[in-house]
Design a protein around this nucleic acid. Sequence first.
DNA 1: AGGGCGCGATTTTTT
DNA 2: ATCGCGCCCT
Length: 779
Amino acid sequence: MSDLKIHDQPAYLQQLNEVQRQAVTTTEGPVLVVAGPGSGKTRVLTFRIAHLIQQGVPPWEILALTFTNKAAREMKERIERVVGERASRVWAGTFHSIFARILRIEADKIGYPSDFTIYDTDDTKSVLGAIITEMGLNKDQYNVNFLRNRISSAKSNLITPKLYRTRNDLLDEDHMAQRPRTVEVYEKYMARCKRSGAMDFDDLLLRMFELLQNHPDVCDKYRQRFRYLLVDEFQDTNFLQYAIVRKLVHYPGSPCNICVVGDDAQSIYGFRGATIRNILEFESDFKNFGIKVFKLEANYRSTEHIVQAANELIAHNTRQIPKTIYSQKGPGERIKLIRAMTDSEEGRRVADTILELKNRHHLRNSDFAILYRTNAQSRIFEEHLRHYNIPYRVFGGMSFYQRKEIKDLIAYLRLAVNPRDDEALRRIINYPRRGIGNTTLDKLGNLASQLDLTMWEALPRLDAGTRTNTLLQEFRHLIESFQQKAAQTDAYTAASYIAQHSGLLKELGADKTPEGLQRFENVTGLLDGIKAFVENDVLETGQEASTDRSLAAYLQNIALVTDLDQADDDGDYVTLMSVHSAKGLEFKSVFVTGLEEQLFPSYLSLDSPEAIDEERRLLYVAITRAEQFLTLSFAHSRYRYGQQRMCEPSRFLSEIAPEHLDQTSPHGSLSRAPFGRFENRMGPRSTQTQSAPPRSGVSGNFKKPRQQTLRADPATFKPSPPEAIQPGMKVLHLQFGEGKVLKVDGARDKRVATVFFPDLDTDQEKRIMLKFAKMQIIS
DNA sequence: AGGGCGCGATTTTTT
DNA sequence: ATCGCGCCCT
């Protein structure tokens, strides 16, 4: 901050160090930002976008691609803080959601309906299962998980079925693996998805690439449109994602305003196709466009021992971008090492250490994270935390949207929007049971592939005997009535009609076991979420006003959302998660556990140097999550697969200089007094979504306002017509109480009022979409 | 059509 | 140990 011209600069630029500032203000031409952990990466990215807008770039000409919805949301929020509402016009989102949006617009050009269905991993496996059954293949040999991986990685490397056929190396591999017909499965799979009007996650990328490749006019349109392109976590991109990015910016005469931000040392998703080469070779790829490289090496997160240990560790990797991360926070404490005899002792001592640190440094539960390589390790920590009454929350595991009952209802909803969705149909044609058994289903499947139709289309042509025919016809009428509802009413009306008339609610309601009750609640929770989607009148930060409240719109919203995105951050609990899930997070105190050979590094990585390097990066990520206190732990024996096994300390431990480690026993006088309230999740393997109903995909924030004096009574509440609402008026909002209208902008359906609600304790200023507003004018 | 039993697998995971 | 799946029996 020694720049003399500092006072001439906008406030946001003054919050940056020299390198960061250059990375933000070098707006033209290709830029690579190598961002070490805790180096202010997100700040650079968001300020850069804000800066572009301040410089007069129209927000809609900026495309920012991320990997998670959470990252995209945070980015938009932070941009809005600098440039205000204009932020909502920036195209910021995940690769998948942005491309889905474009593909829906351009759907007709690639022979898809614009309301195409998005298949998740389960749907994909189910399609593959049907194909191998139909082809009469052995399902151990042609294992669906293998096939899914193989196809996914082919797509991620831009290998279409046609190209696959020409690739002798791949065909040979399949032959050697006794799976010579893999390419046929791949072809059939693609054809089926197309026929069903469905795309899987990889297709969203592949079809995007093909759209740009095969339609020069469309390609030009988006090249013109997105004059400025930014990519977050670039080290996690796969070949296909990079190919799309290149397509958009790498062409003769391109202004080539692309900025990629990432850290090769934090590339930990190689197993799902991410290729570290993208970032390593980015510089040479854009040399001709005059690329500038900025390295953010100042770490504002962690103390010196932690940063240096991380540096030493990662120095053992080959192939990396040279950089030296240095701490800005003083030496701090040494890294504690726990050597335990057993996994159970490890658990106990981690819990002990948490109590001790809480005591000595006045930390909150939420300042702690326990990280592990595999999710199976969480159980022991849970037991010990429970024993000490330390509240905790386990991340990972089954998400809300993966639960069977949720997927069942969603399958009905999907079918109502797109009856060609074979996977949805297969899932619910006989659930709840309506006498359409496997025999009939097989016949239907065979007929469909014979006629090259979807099952829905083949349904009326199937003759399965008088009795079954009647049942099938009833089913058709049922779905047709759902289709009608979906087309004519809003998402909630349609969904509750469907939940009721499909018999799903009745079926679930009949089960009075605790699990059955939970399932019923999950489904009603989903319906509540849909209701919130329909009634939602609050325009979230960075959101564009959208007035579509149809079932189709709802499904499009949830298809690319996980409930990890909506993890509520209130509550004081210790975080338990895998190292992978911890990426991007930070905690005052971090425990990295199970540092043993075969576990961390994983036994599956032992025979490949590249895989070991990725494990090392994984540990690098884990270590650099810690701000002040880092504890590493391992056990000499551990139960694995029901057997107690001896284990060796991880090789990675010896790669950290002993001077950073504090190996003295942490046990002085330890208070065993229980801290915190007992508020653990119910079961040992619970997830963070235990009881929380999902929030609407569009809006999120439904914090209940405090009960205050001026609260609307739903019984007497009469919403005023939206047209009547004008700036300066006092209004009563059904949810937020009394408020004052500050301004109204937008036109017709998209009118948005900015209202100040004094009764709320946070986010008092809300942007309310008047079309859906539940507000009554007081004066 | 559904329940029960036995066998095999079991890193990490956004979208 | 634990869970999911597939097969077989009722």
